[in-house]
């Protein structure tokens, strides 16, 4: 009985592929699940769009609903101009969502429970925001830190706060997703371990008392499915909000 709640986050090397700048590049369980997620997303949407029926089947419905859902999110937060980032936002949403959901299958690895992955995605978003913001608006992009209609004497303070809040964005974006996944999976593991612990130490009585953590486990699993979706959505909608800053700087 693997009672260690941390072991599930262990990245296991399958094959070492080589080294880049002294860093070992290996095919790991994390890589396998990333490849699986990408294959799943591309494969499912490919299958969903093969028949291109006017009255959609189940798979096509799901694909179209996801499309409309993300498109509406982008449109409502970043405006119609934001639709140029639709492929990026759609990729982020489906990637994070599928990785989160794959992690919910017992024994599967949760790629998004590693800060390296979530931070890389967050940095990607912020880089897109900064590069597009400057490309599109030039120096006007920095009006983001210079809100109009603020008295000059508190402007330094406001600017400082704005800069800090901007810098904290990638941090909050990555930590939120990573911490939610990590904490959720640890909690599930801990409650699941309780059942085994009770059963091995108390015998039949332990099995009976074990019903309590088992019920908790069921409730938590449902909650974790919600969290898996919600965190993907939160990541997406925050991405849209930040992109909106790049498209329309100046509050």
């Amino acid at each position: 009985m693997a009672a260690d709640p941390i072991a599930q986050f262990q990245i296991k090397k399958i094959v070492t592929l080589g080294h880049i700048g002294g860093h070992e590049i290996a095919l790991t369980n994390s890589a396998v699940f990333m490849i699986a997620a990408v294959s799943l997303i591309l494969g499912l949407i490919y299958l969903a769009t093969t028949s291109r029926r006017l009255v959609p089947g189940r798979l096509q419905s799901v694909a179209e609903l996801t499309y409309e859902f993300v498109a509406n999110t982008v449109r409502s937060t970043a405006g119609t101009d934001g639709m140029r980032f639709f492929p990026l936002v759609f990729s982020l949403f489906t990637f994070v969502l599928v990785l989160n959901l794959l992690g919910m299958i017992p024994g599967f690895f949760t790629v998004t429970s590693h800060i390296a992955v979530t931070a890389a995605l967050a940095v990607l978003v912020i880089l897109v925001v900064i590069i597009y913001g400057i490309y599109k608006n030039g120096l006007k992009f920095f009006k983001l830190f210079w809100p109009s209609g603020v008295p000059l004497f508190i402007m330094p303070l406001i600017t400082l706060i704005e800069v800090l809040s901007f810098l904290s964005r990638p941090l909050s974006l990555s930590v939120r997703l990573f911490a939610n996944m990590l904490a959720g999976h640890i909690t599930l593991k801990v409650f699941a371990s309780f059942i085994g612990l009770l059963a091995t130490s108390l015998g039949v009585a332990g099995w009976l008392i074990g019903i309590l953590p088992f019920g908790m486990l069921i409730a938590l699993t449902a909650l974790e499915f919600l969290v898996a979706f919600l965190q993907a959505y939160v990541f997406t909608i925050l991405t849209c909000l930040y992109l909106n800053d790049a498209i329309h700087p100046g509050h």
Binding site: E24, I25, A31, V38, S91, F95
Partner: peptide, 17 residues
């Protein structure tokens, strides 16, 4: 493990995008 993760993340995300 970070280098491997970033390596695969980059490949996977680019392929996906």
């Amino acid at each position: 493990t970070v280098a491997s993760q970033l390596f695969w993340l980059a490949i996977c995300f680019v392929v996906l995008y």
